[in-house]
């Protein structure tokens, strides 16, 4: 995993208590059982983590960790 992916993975395992063994670049949020409410919660935490706004609905359950990292990178966030 690249740097942004790794930081997202850390958020998932520390803030959401997702089993670290279940996380990799290609896993979707759906596969991690994240529903729309949990994704909004994740957006709030990633906003603080990366200092960039993430609107409700930008993260969707069909996205992978890699997709989320690209979204955040496109907003100008860096590792």
């Amino acid at each position: 995993m690249n740097g942004i992916e790794q930081r997202i993975a850390n958020v998932l395992s520390t803030s959401f208590k997702v089993d670290p063994n279940a996380i990799d670049s290609d896993v979707t949020f759906l596969a991690l059982k994240f529903d729309s409410l949990v994704l909004i919660e994740l957006s709030l935490i990633l906003e603080k983590e990366f200092g960039t706004p993430i609107e409700d609905g930008e993260l969707t359950d069909d996205m992978t960790i890699n997709d989320a990292a690209e979204l955040i990178a496109a907003k100008g966030a860096t590792v």
Partner: peptide, 12 residues
């Protein structure tokens, strides 16, 4: 709770 219910479930 994490051990009994699973961390992600317990968190919710």
């Amino acid at each position: 709770a994490d051990a009994l219910l699973g961390g992600f479930s317990a968190w919710q």
